Computed example of a mutant assay.
Amino acid sequence: MMESAETALAPAVQKLAPRTPAAFTGKKIAVVGAGPAGMACAHRLAMLGNGVTVYEARSHERMQAAPLLMLEEEGAQQELERLTSSGRVRIEHGCKLGEQVDLAMLHLSHDAVFLGVGLAAGRVLSLTGDDAPGLLDAGRHLAAVHCTEDLLALPVPHRAIVIGAARGAVDMAARLKRLGAHDVTLVYRHGLEADGYEEQTARASYVRLRAWASPLEVLRDERGSVQGVRFEQTRLRDGRLVDTGGFTEIAAHAVFKAVGRAGDEHCQRDDAASRISHEGDRVRVDPCLRTALPGIYAGGDCVAPGQGIAMALRHGALAAHTIHADLQS
């Protein structure tokens, strides 16, 4: 699987490598792990104009004491340092997956997630084995939904929040209303599209719209059921989406994220790409490093253990271009 990804995409990735940072896209991506795959992905995503937050289990002091990681492209290391100092790449230390960092919450609060961690991630996230789940959690009313038809598999909530962007999210919110949800709020981290489609569709379906709000935390009651979401207000500053320090909470019995998956000429979906690997602890990905969970990508040791730093660096760059292309489609 990894050999086909290398063969099909590596030349295109090298050709598409940006020489200077692109204008901000407004997209926000979480990278889990500050190893070779994670930092290569973070660097390339930021160069493509995306906002990146890296979540790393090690403390700042431990990372400083570790051997220096060198990216492959000429000048990439210096560019990464500039991106970090300017805030395009942020590193949050002491954030261990499965403890301080929760995959479902990262998925809700970011446009995409890249897993650049080791084999232990598969066990922590329960991404391996015969019962490999998605982020679909109907019992706790927290779900990542690929398309509106997936809603039919869930109980209809009285109050719902849909987090997403573009037409897929507003269509999902409208479908929830038609299925019988009493109150549906559609939340955007940024402003509404200029063509007015979201506003018109939401008004026609009696869906509430809330722009400029980034999800921070799913609020739960003592039984673990969803009771709302806490958001931080956002705004554009110099073309970049930033947090303002203002907060708001919206009540809900369920929260959904509208996510999509785009294909391209190099990535032909097959049965193997539609599920998580059952081969030990390795996380299965398609040729473009997408996992079976829409909006979540992986590379490095968790998908190809023991292949070395050079492979992990290439995975990071490959995944960055896949993520960027999927989010722009």
Rank of each mutant, 00 (worst) to 15 (best):
V117K: 06
G308V: 01
K28W: 04
R62L: 12
A8Y: 11
A40Y: 01
D270A: 09
C147L: 05
C147D: 14
V162H: 01
S277V: 11
H93G: 04
E198K: 10
G263H: 15
V31G: 12
L327I: 13
T7L: 13
A37E: 03
Q328I: 08
G245P: 09
A144P: 05
C41N: 12
K15H: 14
S329T: 15
G51F: 00
H107K: 11
H146G: 10
R208K: 10
H324W: 01
P18H: 04
V285T: 07
M47Q: 08
D111V: 00
D221Y: 10
G316S: 03
A17D: 15
V184F: 06
Q328C: 11
G280P: 06
G33M: 01
G118P: 01
H146C: 08
S274V: 07
P67W: 12
G180F: 15
G228M: 03
A23G: 07
D111H: 01
L68C: 11
P21T: 09
F231R: 01
A143Q: 12
L127E: 05
A272H: 06
R58E: 12
A138M: 13
L151I: 03
V170S: 05
Q307F: 13
D171R: 12
S4R: 12
E198M: 11
P305I: 03
A34F: 06
C302M: 06
L192G: 03
S274T: 11
L192T: 03
D137A: 07
A76N: 04
A173G: 06
D137R: 10
K15G: 11
S214W: 02
T234R: 00
Q328Y: 05
M39C: 06
V207D: 02
L83Q: 01
F256N: 10
A17V: 14
Q100M: 12
A121P: 02
D130T: 14
T234L: 00
H158V: 13
G116S: 02
D221T: 11
G94M: 06
G38T: 04
L135F: 04
L241W: 00
P294T: 05
R62H: 10
S274K: 11
E198I: 13
C147R: 14
I309C: 05
R210P: 07
A298W: 01
P11G: 02
G300Y: 03
A262P: 14
T128F: 08
P294A: 08
A251F: 09
A42R: 04
P11A: 02
F114S: 02
G87T: 00
L192P: 03
A169N: 13
A213I: 04
